[in-house]
Design a protein around this nucleic acid. Sequence first.
RNA 1: GGCCCUAUCGUCUAGCGGCUAGGACGAAGGCUUCUCAAGCCUUAAACCCGGGUUCGAUUCCCGGUAGGGUCACCA
Length: 458
Amino acid sequence: MATVSGKMITRYAPSPTGGLHVGSVRTALFNYLAAKKYGGEMILRIEDTDRERSKKEYEKDILEAMEWLGLSYSSMYRQSERGSVYEKHVQKLLDTGSAYESTEDKDGKQSTVIRFKNAGKRVTFADLLRGDISFDTTELGDFVIARAKNDPLYHLAVVIDDFESGVTHVIRGEDHISNTPRQILIQEALGAPRPIYVHIPLVLAPDRSKLSKRHGAMPVGEYKALGYLPEALLNFLALLGWSPQGLSLPGREGKGGDIFTLKELTEAFSFDHLQKSGAVFDIEKLNWINGEHIRRMEDAAFMEKVREFLPKEATQLPQYGAERLEKIAPILRERIAKFSDLELLRKGGELAYFFEAPEYVSKKALIWKNEAEENTIQHITHIVKLLTEIPDESFTQETVKGGIWDYATEKGRGAVLWPMRYALSGLDKSPDPFALAEVFGKDETIQRLTTALKTLQS
RNA sequence: GGCCCUAUCGUCUAGCGGCUAGGACGAAGGCUUCUCAAGCCUUAAACCCGGGUUCGAUUCCCGGUAGGGUCACCA
């Protein structure tokens, strides 16, 4: 068959008839990884031969998504701009008798289309993952390949473009397996070399059907809007149908072994270890992977995202400015799986106490279990005294803990720490009192404790 | 329905004739500063069913079953 030599050329060929969803992204990713890994290049081809359904806005979405994901390509072109290229090849097909024009009735109207002269032979091709796949093409009949010489249908355009672009590896979804024999027929008539086919398994909805909009397949833009990181999404998608294991990656065993940057994925990639069966899209795992990526972000990048996702009015209270936000960053970081969770925290009132003194729902809330009120008053009073002894400049989580720990252990940790924490946050659930104290600083910490004391004594 | 593809814990997977069938997500339990989060530890959880081949099948072959894909002047 066709020989493929030299540089690997892959292509990602979406049609702009809808937003890019995760299944398409994964196809793009594998094309990207293969090209990068083996020193080749990936071409982006916009398959917009269907003028009815193709929309410029979808093309824009696709381009933006590729950019956001960091999936770069060596060149991009649109099929809608290549009429003359197709015309040249169609003419050749007509001249050699491989195709013919046919005037027929469609919806009551007469129209002329170009059909492929199909001898109806058996076509066998090798799929890199699945081995030989064989089809009888008789039932395909003389299928239509173009509406006009310069107006090709999908199969024709694909074959001509792959040929003209020197595509060596066609990496696409499994749903294209049955399209392949038809395309091979056209290839042979054109004298085009046969690329290597890699049909990757489909991404499935939880009910194991092909992922679609119906089943929660959101366009990529939605993931971006929800605060997923592009590298995390790619990381997750790569693991759907492919595994880096078996490659004996050092230090990759156990926990965290599934976390990869795009660069690491590229290094680890190989066509071996591609799965043959469909993989269910599991949002839980995506969330975990995204959280892991968030925890590994640089501080500056993390802060930038936090500012992007938190409304200004929630964080830019004049008395604190941006400083307070930076202080609570480590606390925020371990509490979210995606950046839109920040908004959830805020709405749940889990952020407000960082920026305004809390109001206590009741005296009782400040008291640990069945502890006596007087004891609680005594504990808080003593905590204030202990904290006062810590110098301003060394008022940290560690020194606060060091200063209070023995007392808390002696009197009962719950009895001492619960009221302290509650006094600082005003919530049943919050970060520990030491972390909070460091965020607030000595003065404000003491002030909040004093307010709580007054509440108890009122 | 025809044709084609596929089949290991709930999910993603490792395994490439001999293993106590490994890991990750999720779940359950525990530990770590009172709560929460994060982290750490532990536990439960799988080879679709039959036939072969073989000394020996999760692994190779065949059949069944199940799931999926595809059958346009869409891509």
